[in-house]
Computed example of a mutant assay.
Amino acid sequence: MMKSKGSLLILIGCLPLAVMSLTCYTCMFPAISPLDCLKFPQECPVGQRCLASTAVGVKGSVSIVLYERSCALPSQCDQHGEKHAAGIKFNYTNECCDTDLCNTAAPISSPRWTGAVLSLCSLVLLLQLG
């Protein structure tokens, strides 16, 4: 009896592990709000990762930020470069992650930056009123 249990454990250990696919948020350029991407979760093909890409373009005195969230091949991860859209050159950065819906809409640092901006705006308003 003990011998058959040992053989069963060895057999189970030799089985290939099930490969699971990820679910990632998706939206493609030119999404101008990172929140647009939360509406479209998608199951990715096996072997792909979740991508979060941000591109910044400048035309005159206007700065434009575009967001892309999607499934990506590992070769697309941790890349940066240029994309061209509507006659504007955008510098982009790709970041990938490996858990379901990990390519969230807003960067982790956004709440601190937003808080700082709101605090500064409040201070300016108080100075103007006082």
Rank of each mutant, 00 (worst) to 15 (best):
M1G: 11
M1N: 12
K5G: 05
G6S: 06
L9E: 04
I10N: 02
L11E: 07
I12A: 04
C14A: 15
P16Q: 12
P16M: 12
L17N: 11
V19N: 13
V19R: 14
V19E: 15
M20S: 14
M20A: 14
S21W: 09
L22R: 00
C24A: 07
Y25N: 02
C27S: 07
C27L: 09
C27N: 05
F29D: 03
F29S: 01
P30R: 06
I32E: 13
I32H: 11
L35E: 08
L38C: 04
F40M: 03
E43W: 00
P45S: 11
V46N: 14
Q48S: 09
R49A: 03
C50Y: 02
V58G: 00
V58M: 01
V58D: 01
K59R: 13
K59Q: 12
G60D: 10
G60V: 10
V62W: 06
V65G: 02
Y67K: 08
R69C: 07
C71V: 03
L73P: 01
P74T: 12
Q76E: 15
C77Q: 04
C77S: 08
Q79C: 07
Q79W: 00
H80G: 11
G81A: 12
E82N: 09
E82F: 13
E82T: 12
K83G: 01
H84L: 10
A85C: 03
A86E: 14
G87D: 11
I88D: 06
F90M: 08
N91Y: 15
Y92Q: 04
N94Q: 07
C102P: 03
N103R: 07
T104P: 00
P107C: 04
S110D: 13
R112D: 06
C121D: 06
L123H: 03
L125Y: 08
L126Y: 02
L126I: 11
L127P: 00
G130R: 10
